[in-house]
Write a protein that binds this DNA or RNA. Structure first.
Lengths: 247, 247
DNA sequence: CGTCCCCTTGAATGAAGTCAATACGCGTGG
DNA sequence: CCACGCGTATTGACTTCATTCAAGGGGACG
């Protein structure tokens, strides 16, 4: 059976048993929902009832200021999932929306807790994934605080490229990048105009291609140097692989 | 017995039983360590072995770029604790350092797991606190991405004031603010010079006083309006209070 | 074929950074 | 007790990066 994105991703952390994998695959089939671009998946103020597991398409967390400004706080790619303990909170302090058409599996609290109880290795892997999400959030904070426009955008491209690669969505240096320049601006705290100029710049330097929502990175090391990108925060070095799987 | 900061903070989420409180107080007494200003509590690259529980003083997470720029990613105030599942990671992707003299209780994995097993209400409350930390991180991302200098600094002051208040560290509109202007700059992505100008501005408008590391907020609602501050992300509205305590 | 959204580009403007000089407070040691 | 040094705060003048405003182009779709 084809590896789901989630299984593939967690495999970077630990060696999962066949049973673990099947449990996760089953999880991905639970209560599927589809959303179109810009649809709200969970809105600010609502009470979260389920954990969302993103199977296909891109979604984002975002937060609006009262005067209309909007920040995209993080991205959900296939294989990502949103805060495991989210039901503890009474209401969402931000929204989650689809960026492209999206398929989500919604996991209830009960299902979730049953899995965590019965499959310690999966539980461990899910904690790992949530720690990585937190690390990504911190890196975005760092980017916004310290990097300039060119560094920020380069950094974002490097990060997305690596994250997509680790769920099997990079082929021959290319991946989908289904974001408008305005949306990239909402992530990087820049205007669409500035994003445009930086992308031109990177294109003319021969580092990347980006057209019709497909990104190709010609010289990843160079882009990483520009971005001051260090992948250590993604914790992909098989950290839990020493834990033998009862495979 | 005097409420520890932690007990006080968790009390905003749920009603703790006397037994729960005693367990938490005991936790605060475990393996105490002290650090001086600028001491490294855990450094990037190290393997995290314990959960740090901050009892007294201020500390921060920070991340350095290769060229020397530094971003302060978050602050630890008395009653805060760092990622509960941190031992899952093989190495830290950032550092934690003392800002002022700091007292920390270091909780081992075993102690931690024992408590979570035996005291579901405490476990629940700790998850709540970690979700709030994540929400704070998202708000910092939003600030850096969307707010201008004056809004960012005002927002930071509002947040710290509320957080300190909820652990009993605000008295007559005043609290300690043991940060240099340079450090405020490292949090808000501004230079010390810009921070200085904004603070002057807020002072001259009669909104705040800030001298010898003591902050007084004269008009909190006005400051909140400037900052576009909305406390919902701190989730202080007694969200779990409906859960009766076996008190 | 017109409309809408997105991308592109140029010129003017503005917020924050840089550089540099000065002031202040505090502890230390002569 | 004073001189000194050090870290921090303050202020002014100049620079720069990114924004704003504005106009035009291209592709998808009804």
């Amino acid at each position: 059976m084809k590896n789901s994105r989630l299984v593939r991703k967690l495999g970077h952390f630990t060696r999962l048993s066949q049973d673990d994998k099947e449990v996760l695959e089953a999880l991905c089939r639970s209560r599927p929902r589809r959303f179109g671009p810009r649809d709200t998946i969970i809105g600010e103020g609502e009470r979260p009832q389920t954990v969302s597991l993103f199977l296909d398409g891109w979604a984002c967390r975002h937060k609006g200021l009262e005067d209309g400004r909007r920040q995209i706080i993080s991205l959900f790619l296939p294989g990502d999932l949103c805060d495991i303990n989210i039901f503890i909170l009474k209401q969402m302090d931000h929204s989650i929306s689809a960026v492209t058409p999206v398929t989500v599996a919604e996991v209830t609290r009960e299902m979730f807790e049953a899995i965590v109880e019965g499959h310690p290795r999966i539980a461990q892997a899910l904690w790992w994934e949530s720690l990585v999400s937190a690390a990504i959030q911190r890196e975005w904070t760092t980017s916004l605080g310290q990097r300039d426009a060119k560094e920020r955008i380069s950094h974002l491209l490097c990060e997305l490229y690596v994250r997509l690669d680790c769920v099997g969505l990079v082929e021959r240096c290319s991946c989908q990048l289904p974001l408008s320049q305005a949306e990239i601006g909402e992530m990087t705290g820049l205007t669409a105009v500035s994003v445009n100029r930086v992308l031109q710049d990177l294109r003319h330097a021969g580092l990347i291609d980006l057209k019709s929502r497909v990104l190709t990175i010609h010289d990843l090391p160079a882009l990483e140097r520009i971005a001051l990108f260090n992948a250590n925060y993604l914790h992909l070095e098989g950290e839990g692989k020493h834990l033998a799987a009862n495979q």
